[in-house]
Amino acid sequence: MTPLQYYLALAAALFAVGAWGVVARRNIILVVMCLELMLNAVNIALVAFSNYSAIGPGRGEVFVFIVLAVAAAEVAVGLAIGIAMYRLRERLDVDELDDLKG
């Protein structure tokens, strides 16, 4: 069967792709989407550890349920901020939010 390390490598790769998107892209909606990707990578790692660990079944999966709920909250607030930002200045680029810069 597939070793645990394979799943961890998959999670690391997915996390890195999400981090790449967060750093490289300008659109705030795509940044939120990439954050979701990173949370999914963490979920894969948690489920993999839960599946292979010896501490009893399901401990890791409970964490994933809570991460799912927090991810839903995060995407709702993030997209609402994006919509509010679009109303205010008709733009969605995160690098233009520099009003607090002296």
Binding site: Q5, F15, W20, Y52, S53, P57
Partner: peptide, 26 residues
């Protein structure tokens, strides 16, 4: 991002893990 993936992969891959005797199926 590539360096991040490499570092994460190396660190996670070299860890010592306490395997369960058989997969957990809650």
């Amino acid at each position: 991002a590539v360096i991040l993936a490499a570092v994460l992969g190396v660190v996670l891959g070299r860890g010592k893990y306490n395997y369960a005797p058989k997969p957990q199926n809650p």
